[in-house]
Design a protein around this nucleic acid. Sequence first.
DNA 1: AAAAAAT
Length: 702
Amino acid sequence: MPKNKKPAGGRPAKNFEPRYGAKTSYQDRKRRPGESSAGKPGSKSAGHRGHRAESTDTSPKRRWTAQEKVGRDEARGIRTHSRDDRPVRSYDDRPRRDDRPARPFDDRPRRDDRPARSFDDRPRRDDRPARSFDDRPRRDDRPARSFDDRPRRDDRPARSHDDRPRRDAGDRGARDARAPRLDRVNRDDRRSFGDARPSYRGDDRRSPSSDRGARSYDRPARSSDDRPPRDSTDRPARSFDDRPRRDSNDRPARSYDDRPRRDDRPRQEGRPRRTDAPNRSDWNAPTRTAAREAQVDVVHERLQAEAVQAGEVENVTFGDLGLGENIVRTLADLGAQHPFPIQAATIPSILDGKDVLARGRTGSGKTIAFGAPLVESVLRSQSGGRREFGRAPRALIMAPTRELALQIDRTIQPIARSVGLFTTQIYGGVPQGRQVGALKKGVDIIIGTPGRIEDLLNQGKLDLSQIRIAVLDEADHMCELGFLEPVQRILRHTADGSQKLLFSATLDREVASLVDEFLVAPAVYEVAGEDQESGTIEHRVLVIDHRDKAEILTSLVDRDAKTLVFARTRAYAEMLAEEFDDAGIRALALHGDLNQAKRTRNLERLTSGRVNVLVATDVAARGIHVDDIDLVVQADPPDEYKTYLHRSGRTGRAGREGTVVTLITRQRRRRMTEMLERAEIDAPFDEVRPGDRVIEALRQAR
DNA sequence: AAAAAAT
């Protein structure tokens, strides 16, 4: 095991014990040994007192696009905080580039609070050359690893601030590319979210019928709590599995168990679930096969949805869908010239005030599908008291990870700004001062994660009583254990009758608990023909010997294009990043043991191309969009098919091609096969040893 | 196991 390969100075991988000192980040530690920050140029001079000489040089930039501005804004936010609120925090993490305070958008309230000083002022930080990156020529951005003797680094000197630019460009490009695919929506039938019920037993999906039973959901809330006990029994459901199989227990976890309903609500029984949905047979599939393996992973009943025919939305424009001019223009700036199918389907309904459930595969444009109409609705609803100081927010968007919340804001903020509305991010890991300050001044849309939102809510610093539209991105995930309850508590604080929108690439009946309590007659949409086969991702499974794992991973990752590696634990993600680094392949990690600034920065480095390899835990599995990832490597196979779908969805976005490679050992073959069945993915399995041709073929960028 | 608040 490569773990100890580090030379003397290096500490063995095990050392990194994350948590204690949250602030101590792995990198910080590493850095110490060799290079003292002292040596680094940037740190001091420029660093102190807001000296931003360096940054200046970066300025020669071209004008910022809306997205870039937002990006800086958010980055600034993080840094800012650090300074203000917690002066000391190790925050160190150097502010990435954004440092460029770009003041342009001062519009935003927040910044004023902190006058100019740049974060450089931040005291300590010695270790890190601080701010560096960006501007500074300084070499390694990742000082960290330095002592490792690793040679590499130099290679990338080149980087320059390029980073941000590209992304937009890319985005756009991407979108344009796919644009063609969409076009008219064909909403034929709208099926109801339908009955939950029994379905679990796969067979009974009987009556297709009428679709709309519509709302079954209206039923007053059945709170989840109520029905506790029974489930087990009642849910004979999975019985079909008769296979008691092992893991039976594992699944308990799944929240769905908690999901009450189902039996209790007899009514539904009759509910027609239409099985014959056009094109896609089920939302998530393979119920029958699933049954067999339901051990770890459960395939929930599919939702009845109105299928949007991708090919038919041709000629439809965002304007036709009901969005105003400024918004349409901003969307175009963001690269969205024409609506994608999922967008064409949901926008009218959302503007219509309906509760909406939507499933669109990864990279299909869900953020704009709910974001644009949300902004339009808020705008229409506030015609009068706009910009009132201290106004309470009218729309809320929640996501499962901070990075995703940040990314969503990056897309929505420009849209909101274009019509004079303000957004603010409310997520943990950063001082709350700035967030609270923004709320005090008054914002219209808040985007964040459950923890901090609930925290501010309980502190009385966040008033959700005026929330008229609440969105749950990755809704099914938000219904899992650990997320469901906070989410429910938060939603209960929103205005009565507020509109609810649930989106996810794997939306299924797991969201029933929320639907039952919060949605009324929801419209359900999905895009016809969006099955895995129609995708642009190639899936491969490499069956290897455990002892060859590190070597094979290293060779897979040793390539020029962007590669995202998933590991099951934070420690392993960290270890892999170090191993790659030691092998001369620049790599960064992304997981919950890193402080938020580092998380944000490391992800940004992949996005900007400063680093090509990012090793992450499932924190990066859902929603994160990085343009050019053409290879996703699962160092550890996921336990659930949904996780597989989301992880692999980090590539092949917007119609591009991508490859997903999953490493497993022989004994995992069967489980892997079963999981792929649930995911409805066909992937060849190859027994591989280091140096095999297959590996070489896979690392070739596509 | 991970994520999500912070202390």
